[in-house]
């Protein structure tokens, strides 16, 4: 149902930059996939081709729906099943945590109700449950800008969860966080993947995090898949091949666990 299949998928940005070159990939339902690669290798583009935020050609199938050539309505239907988490959290700072999380319900409720802010009790309940799942339900009615970075990212995760998604795309979710908070967020994502069986694709650039939490690893280099396999088979040589250079301390987040 929530299998993702890339067939010959390419992304060329309006400026002419080819960010993704004829990628073939299959991601099975419930998998926890970590994508690594240098910045500019196409990690973000790969994620955004799943929910149609970038102009993709070829074929990307999400479940039984096709992203390429989908109409606006079809794209919205695909997106409603795909939660997304961002490096910069992308919260509306002036709004409360609650209304940020309810953004995850926008595709599920009637347009006028959502735009006027008259949310059904059912949707509010889902939002509260999502916040409970990431452990910050006590912050529900606080302005998003009053939270710490780690708390903001958990609001971001709750917003994705409120969609009741089948797939979660996390674009560098810990790049703006300190090591301790990074581990908390990574563990949250892992737990959600296990408990709810949500297919999860995470872009990371810290290799130790990838090794610690990943199951399957996809390495991107210049928009092409340079490695695809189990994380247990990955050694420094493979990282070196993906990165095109030796591993440096900058590639590690450190502080293994709490």
């Amino acid at each position: 149902m929530s299998r993702i299949v890339f067939t010959n998928a390419s992304v060329t940005y309006p400026g002419g930059l080819v960010a993704l070159k004829e990628v073939d990939l299959t991601i099975e339902e419930g998998e926890f996939v970590v994508v690594v690669g240098l910045s500019g290798a196409g990690k973000s583009t790969l994620l955004r081709s799943v929910n149609g935020l970038v102009p993709v050609t070829g074929s990307v199938r999400v479940g039984d729906r096709e992203v390429v050539g989908a109409s606006n309505r079809e794209i919205r239907e695909i997106r409603s099943d795909v939660g997304m988490i961002f490096q910069t959290f992308n919260l509306v700072n002036r709004s409360t945590v609650m209304s940020n999380v309810l953004m995850g319900r926008l595709s599920k409720v009637s347009r006028w109700r959502s735009m006027l802010g008259v949310w059904p009790a059912h949707d509010k309940e889902i939002a509260l449950q999502s916040l409970e799942r990431v452990g910050i339900v006590e912050k529900t009615y606080i302005r998003a800008s009053d939270l710490s970075g780690g708390q903001q990212q958990r609001v971001g995760i709750a917003r994705a969860l409120a969609q009741e998604p089948k797939i979660i795309l996390a674009d560098e979710p810990v790049a703006s966080l300190d090591p301790v908070t990074s581990h908390i967020v990574m563990r949250d994502l892992k737990r959600i993947n296990r408990d709810l069986g949500i297919t999860t694709i995470i872009n990371l650039h810290f290799l130790d995090l990838a090794r610690q939490y990943g199951e399957r690893l996809i390495g991107l280099r210049d928009g092409e898949v340079a490695f695809d396999g189990s994380i247990s088979n990955v050694d420094d040589d493979i990282f070196r091949d993906i990165y095109g250079r030796a591993i440096t301390p900058d590639d590690l987040v450190g502080e293994a666990a709490l």
């Binding site: 929910n51 997304m84 961002f86």
Partner: peptide, 30 residues
């Protein structure tokens, strides 16, 4: 305005008007 929340709303499957009301308007309300 900050485009991040707009992308988040779109990624959640919001229509353009929903995106405006929920992600853009709160930013400029004051």
């Amino acid at each position: 305005i900050n485009l991040g929340p707009l992308e988040a709303a779109r990624a959640a499957g919001a229509t353009n008007n929903q995106t405006i009301m929920k992600a853009a308007f709160p930013q400029i309300a004051p």
